[in-house]
């Protein structure tokens, strides 16, 4: 028998306000935290510097250099892969992966400029975003084991590297007056 309170039904506002809040089916925070960049120190100074002429070209060059270094590092074998059952080693590796993911997020945020981009670039960017979102959804699943988390976080970092490389290449081309392709599309 439902609990009927006549006061609730005296107005539509009251009836709507009495509807219970709904909890999401899964915890979205792990995915959000993973996509949240680490705060940068001196961000005001960076913003001021970013307004200077030639900043775009300098940024594109720096990003390309940084990403090249990261991608080379990624090609190295992972010496700290934890064995199964090594909880503390897994936790340490996960912590490193979180930090690496966060740094890449920050880099990607800098490299990204979605104001105007070609249709092909938008598609490639959207595909990479979808890949990252799918990994985040997998990470949000309850009951993941340490090894599964490690694998997913590595996949996430690979996807972020790919997205970062793509965005910085695109900016590099744009800074040189070239485009990813001819068809421009406006993104709101």
């Amino acid at each position: 028998m439902p609990d009927l309170d006549p006061r609730r039904s005296s107005t539509w506002q009251g009836a709507f306000a009495a509807l219970p809040q709904v909890a999401p089916g899964r915890d979205a925070w792990p995915g959000i935290a993973a996509r949240t960049p680490t705060p940068a120190r001196g961000s005001t100074r960076i913003a001021r510097f970013a307004r200077r002429p030639g900043f775009g070209l300098a940024l594109a060059a720096s990003l390309l250099l940084a990403l090249t270094a990261i991608l080379r590092f990624a090609a190295l074998p992972h010496g700290d892969v934890p064995g199964s059952g090594q909880d503390s080693a897994t936790a340490t590796s996960l912590k490193d992966l979180y930090a690496q993911s966060s740094r890449l997020e920050s880099l990607l945020l800098l490299a990204r400029d979605d104001r105007v981009l070609s249709a092909s670039a938008a598609n490639v960017g959207a595909d990479l975003d979808a890949r990252i979102a799918a990994i985040d959804a997998a990470l949000a699943q309850p009951g993941l084991g340490g090894q599964q988390q490690l694998q997913l976080w590595r996949l996430r970092i690979d996807a972020l590297r790919e997205a970062g490389a793509f965005q910085s290449n695109r900016r590099w081309l744009a800074a040189h007056g070239e485009r990813y392709d001819g068809a421009l599309v406006r993104i709101d």
């Binding site: 439902p2 009927l4 006549p6 609730r8 005296s10 107005t11 009836a15 709507f16 009495a18 509807l19």
Partner: peptide, 14 residues
């Protein structure tokens, strides 16, 4: 007009 009494039942209203 005020809502019907059944509007106080959250499940029904939902």
């Amino acid at each position: 007009a005020p809502p019907p009494a059944a509007a106080a039942d959250a499940a029904r209203l939902s």
